[in-house]
């Protein structure tokens, strides 16, 4: 369970660095605007917040993965027994952020708007957000150190990938999940999207560990 210890360490470092707070606050502002007036009945308004969460989650994962100094990272890797626990710990922190932001997105309109939100609908909204967030995590991890070492390139590639993949309604998991929320298509498509997103995020962490080993 060294991955958990790594996750706690990286989370403590990331929170102290304040840099992870920027995407979180930005996303809170997006939610405040989206659900401020009358957004209409759920789940359609969640399509917009889920789509907004995609780049936010990529930003968050990139920040978490890049927070630690590279020399400090060699100590962390030696102490935790390899690159895999470190990559897994990074993934856990990013996914924890995804879950928190997804929950926030679902709870916000319950509090801020007067529409009824039955549990099934809440689950649909949560899974739709999780699908976009975990895919964003995958993109963020693939654009961060050690896969892409320079922050300029990281940002360019991340923005490019998010913009290109985020606007295709047929493309799983983000496009299909956003489309499903917009159409109110039920839990199955978003559940599939969330599962696929989590698999992608796990694979991205694996790629990250494999690349780190070769350095």
């Amino acid at each position: 369970m060294r991955a958990l210890a790594v996750a706690r360490f990286l989370a403590a470092d990331a929170i102290r660095s304040r840099r992870v707070l920027i995407p979180v606050f930005l996303y809170a502002a997006v939610l405040a605007v989206l659900f401020g007036g009358d957004p209409g009945p759920p789940p359609a308004p969640w399509a917009a917040s889920a789509l907004a969460l995609y780049p936010i989650a990529a930003w968050l994962a990139l920040t978490v993965a890049n927070t630690e100094d590279p020399v400090q990272r060699t100590v962390t890797v030696a102490a935790s027994g390899g690159h895999l626990p470190v990559a897994a710990g990074t993934l856990l922190v990013a996914l924890a952020g995804d879950v928190v932001l997804s929950l926030l997105s679902v709870v916000w309109p319950v509090v801020a708007t007067g529409y009824p939100h039955p549990p099934g609908l809440l689950m649909e909204g949560f899974l739709g957000h999780l699908a976009c967030a975990s895919t964003g995590t995958a993109v963020g991890l693939l654009c961060a150190r050690p896969v892409i070492g320079r922050i300029g390139w990281s940002l360019m590639v991340a923005v490019f990938v998010v913009v290109v993949t985020g606007v295709q309604p047929w493309l799983p998991p983000v496009g299909t999940s956003v489309a499903a929320l917009e159409a109110g298509a039920g839990t199955s498509p978003v559940a599939f999207g969330a599962l696929l997103g989590l698999v992608l995020a796990g694979a991205a962490a694996g790629v990250s560990a494999a690349v780190a080993r070769r350095l």
């Binding site: 210890a5 790594v6 403590a12 100590v75 102490a79």
Partner: peptide, 8 residues
């Protein structure tokens, strides 16, 4: 403390 945890 964190490094002690990593070192088990």
């Amino acid at each position: 403390r964190h490094l002690a945890a990593l070192h088990r």
